[in-house]
């Protein structure tokens, strides 16, 4: 049986790892390659490197860093931020990334998902969705949470899946940085509606939140940043805890 995955996310700005609360107030959290290697040795199942300012500033992503990560780390990693067209995907994969995640670019031009799936296979295409629960339900946001769209979370996730996405990485903007747990209700609905894996993101504060998202949220993987970067939760302890709770994890 497939193990539930624990994925530290490294938000990158100017080559450094940063993590903010609700997408603002960034604090530095160290060298991305060293941090990634440390996580890998501690038992992280995958890593995600997101160039968080790329989309906003129209910057191209960080090929040099990706090459260094690929050379030094022996577990799969995903890169995102600033991937707008097929040639960006090609460059990232050639630099050694295993998967790419697309967010704003996919909402602006959904055909990009089909193009990536057809050219490189669904397995490389993670569609990341930032969504917020509003008065009108879950709405998707662009540009790292700066711009609201008319697209609803569930219909967009379904379309992404139908177009060939390999995974959905759903970040709840309501939960992100608050450390009160993942958006398990929405996650469970996504998992029920989609035929591809769902990665929970936003809200991890303690070990129990991971258990809850794997059980109640039906998540296939859980992503977190600051709780790992600042040592609030250690990955070996987290995995031992999940194992003791009867969840299948790689130890």
């Amino acid at each position: 049986m497939l193990a539930k995955r624990i994925i530290p996310c490294l938000d990158i700005k100017n080559g450094e790892t940063v993590k903010g609360t609700n997408f603002v107030n960034l604090r530095s959290a160290g060298d991305p390659v060293e941090l990634g290697r440390a996580y890998s040795e501690q038992g992280a199942d995958e890593l995600v490197y997101l160039d968080i300012t790329a989309s906003h500033e129209g910057r191209k992503t960080f090929t040099d860093l990706v090459q260094r990560v690929a050379a030094n780390i022996n577990i799969p990693f995903t890169v995102g931020g600033g991937i707008n067209e097929l040639c960006d995907v090609d460059r990232m994969l050639n630099a050694g990334a295993d998967k790419i995640s697309i967010n704003s670019a996919a909402i602006r031009r959904p055909e990009l998902i089909d193009e990536i799936a057809n050219s490189f296979g669904s397995q490389v295409c993670v569609v990341a969705i930032d969504a917020k629960l509003t008065e009108n339900g879950w709405k998707c946001y662009l540009n790292g949470g700066r711009l609201e769209t008319e697209r609803g979370l569930f219909e967009w996730a379904k379309e992404a899946c139908d177009r060939g996405a390999g995974e959905i990485l759903f970040t709840s903007m309501n939960h992100d940085g608050v450390k009160a747990g993942f958006a398990d209700e929405a996650l469970a609905q996504l998992s029920d509606e989609l035929s591809i894996p769902v990665i929970a993101s936003g809200g991890a504060g303690k070990k129990e939140h991971f258990r809850d998202t794997f059980i109640n949220g039906k998540s296939d993987a859980a992503l977190a940043a600051s709780v790992f970067h600042f040592g609030e939760i250690s990955i070996p302890e987290l995995k031992q805890y999940l194992h003791s709770e009867g969840i299948n994890v790689r130890i």
Binding site: R5, D45, Q123, G166, E167, S195, P197, A221
Partner: peptide
């Protein structure tokens, strides 16, 4: 797949 939670591609650690 025979059940909904058996997703394809099979992706991850087994």
């Amino acid at each position: 797949p025979t059940r909904h939670d058996e997703k394809v591609p099979c992706m991850g650690w087994n």
